[in-house]
Amino acid sequence: MNKVTLIATATMGLEAIVAREVKDLGYNDVKVENGRVEFTADVSAIPRANLWLRTADRVKIKVGEFKAYTFDELFEKTKALPWADLIPVDAEFPVIGKSVKSTLFSVSDCQAIVKKAVVESMKLKHKLDWFDEDGAFYRIEVALLKDVATLTIDTSGTGLHKRGYRYHHNEAPLKETLAAAMIMLTNWKPDRPFADPFCGSGTLPIEAAMIGQNIAPGFNREFASEDWHWIGEDKWNEARQEVEDLANYDQPLDILGADIDHRSVELAQNNAMEAGFDELIQFKQMQVKDFRHKGQYGVLIGNPPYGERLGERPEVEEMYRDMGEAFKLLDTWSIYMLTSHEQFETFYGKKASKKRKLYNGNIKTDYYQFFGPRPPRKD
């Protein structure tokens, strides 16, 4: 197998960033749709995309796509796909599904039909009547959207936001993929200071350190497709060697994480240690109104409390006022804040240079961007 069509799934609002990452890996046959970025590449793209994509949720192989209005259509068109070229005779291949605005709305029925169709397809190719399913893991998904069925196989296994460093987190952790996107939407460069005054379990500072030293987000974890014989161990070894060759462990970084809660600071320190950044990232316990930094032309990114519960609103709004006053001292810095509070600018005391809609889980938020002056050019 030389070429595959891959789908990098993305949280709503992050598709353009995922597409940019895919192109940065050298893949130009890219199509951007809601919640996904599709591209065609050789098989080596499977390990490379899984290891390098910071903002995608998963990487899937697209096996087929077709209209399906009846269960018979779904069965026959699924059966006609080349499953035996992808799935070996001993593979474990469960089927999951989802259906949105489609005639075939029963997900459990769609899953059962797809499973049966795949089995029948493989029977014809392998000349067998029974599959033990005790080998490598190939999870199939049938996704129906407006009567179009997309059949995929997941190459990632655990979602790509699971980097392998965050064993501890607080009650509402920021997803690693969203944290990486928030950083990539800024003008931060590794030679400039970086700060997060609401660091929680340390996700933003750790993702910044990984970006700053060009460390692939998947360097410290495993993937389902590592066991797939037709990709081969050599391609995975080559991809991991590329990760090692391109990492810049000598890049100095000025990264600070702060939080009012000492338990969060301890969590963040432990997670930074797991990621190997305990000597690169500084963590402090402090209130946002006391936030200070001696650096110039830095980037400050925060995910403050939103005040989603009515009783918390007055306290959160007061904190936004304090934030606005404290950050006036950072007159050369660029400030980026994520919150669902629609009056954030009013309490912060300044209108954002730009706003971008992002989703933090199921919460629709705005990413408020306050651009500072450009740093002077170096000789």
Rank of each mutant, 00 (worst) to 15 (best):
T5D: 05
L6R: 03
T9W: 02
A10F: 14
E15W: 00
A19E: 01
V22Q: 02
K23D: 04
D24V: 09
K31V: 12
E33M: 12
E38P: 06
V43Y: 12
R48N: 06
A49P: 00
V63L: 13
A68N: 11
D72W: 08
E76V: 14
K79S: 04
P82G: 12
E92S: 10
V95T: 10
S99Y: 08
S99T: 12
T103Y: 13
L104H: 10
F105P: 07
D109T: 09
K115P: 03
K115A: 05
E120R: 15
K123G: 09
K127T: 08
Y138D: 02
V142K: 04
T150F: 11
L151D: 05
T152N: 05
T155V: 07
S156F: 14
T158M: 08
G159E: 11
H161Y: 14
R166T: 03
Y167T: 09
E171N: 10
A172D: 01
A172E: 01
P173A: 12
L178D: 06
A179T: 06
M184P: 02
W188K: 00
D191M: 09
R192G: 11
F194T: 02
P197R: 00
G200D: 01
T203R: 07
I206D: 06
M210G: 06
A216Y: 02
G218L: 01
F219K: 11
F223A: 12
E226H: 10
D227F: 03
W228D: 07
E233K: 15
W236S: 15
N237P: 14
N237R: 14
A239H: 04
E244P: 10
L246R: 13
Q251D: 06
Q251H: 03
I260C: 00
V265G: 00
E279S: 11
Q285C: 10
Q287N: 13
F291T: 04
F291Q: 15
R292T: 12
L310G: 02
P314S: 08
E318T: 00
E325Q: 04
T332P: 05
T332M: 10
S334K: 08
I335R: 07
Q343F: 06
E345Y: 14
F347S: 02
K351T: 07
L358H: 08
I363P: 07
D366I: 00
F371L: 12
R374S: 14
P376H: 01
K378E: 11
